[in-house]
Design a protein around this nucleic acid. Structure first.
Lengths: 143, 143
DNA sequence: GCAAACCCTGTAGCTACTATAAGGTCAAGC
DNA sequence: GCTTGACCTTATAGTAGCTACAGGGTTTGC
């Protein structure tokens, strides 16, 4: 199949497929006489594997590693696979925690200007300005 | 003060300060005879304002807008300030939701390989492979 | 008079794509 | 046989927000 067909079947844009090939995540397929890429079933599965990992937020470098484990002897221990997933879980977890703090801070800032005001007495701008001149700010104080 | 001093006082690297200047977030300061940037107190406050907004996760484009509101007539309504903060809150909120789903998916995947195995029968690799061949996967099924 | 610590500009790198530009190929219809 | 449109190709530049050089000039202290 051509690249457009592979793109349609996987929901991944042709340009992204070519990008994955450049990055060494997908093997370079055979070419037609006119230079068009010709994909087979294994390519589709490999791409689906990549896309599934991406949907779990994994970085391409980790996916490259995961894909590499297929080429290794099957008797090897799989602890490095587990470690990659654990890393990803902790990355995601700390992102969540950071964003939750952020949301609280933003809501405290937002509460400074509930009803419509003018710029002159907008509690939000005032709070941001105060923080800039070194005063305590509503958003970061209580965090 | 020189750029290094400003950097030390704000905890922002010199290169980042020059970057903000290039991006039009900080006004270009006066220069010494040898071309060194000379900053005054207002620059420090402006930079602190930017850094405070950044610490709330706001994109530079929004910070540029926020900073611009200082130059506008004080009697203008501040609803656009509020809108920017509201936007940021909803961005952060939807990121949190997406990451929470992700964490559940990752933990379901991780549960496929609790005790140490070999690559051949690693539940994680198997699950990822199955997903690539179109079968239902543990991680995305229950999401 | 020299070395260390500072400063300058300009450019390239990071992630994971996305979007062009400028061109070649192929099948259908007239 | 020729055109039209949908496909494909490569190469390059852009996105966000920095960070990290390279290759040079300046200033300060000993």
């Amino acid at each position: 199949m051509q690249i457009g067909e592979l793109a349609k079947r996987t929901g991944c844009e042709s340009e992204t497929i070519r990008y994955y090939e450049r990055e060494g995540l997908l093997p370079a397929p055979a070419r037609s006489s006119s230079g068009y890429r010709r994909y087979e079933q294994p390519h589709l599965e490999q791409l689906a594997f990549i896309l599934h990992c991406r949907s779990l937020g994994m970085p391409l470098a980790d996916i490259r590693l995961l894909a590499g484990f297929h080429q290794q002897p099957a008797a090897e221990p799989c602890d490095r696979v587990n470690a990659l997933i654990d890393q990803q879980i902790s990355r995601v977890h700390s992102q969540i925690e950071a964003l939750q703090k952020l949301e609280i801070q933003l809501q405290q800032l937002r509460a400074r200007c509930e009803s419509p005001h003018t710029l002159a007495d907008c509690g939000i701008l005032k709070t941001l300005d105060d923080a800039a001149t070194g005063e305590a700010c509503a958003c970061h104080d209580a965090s």
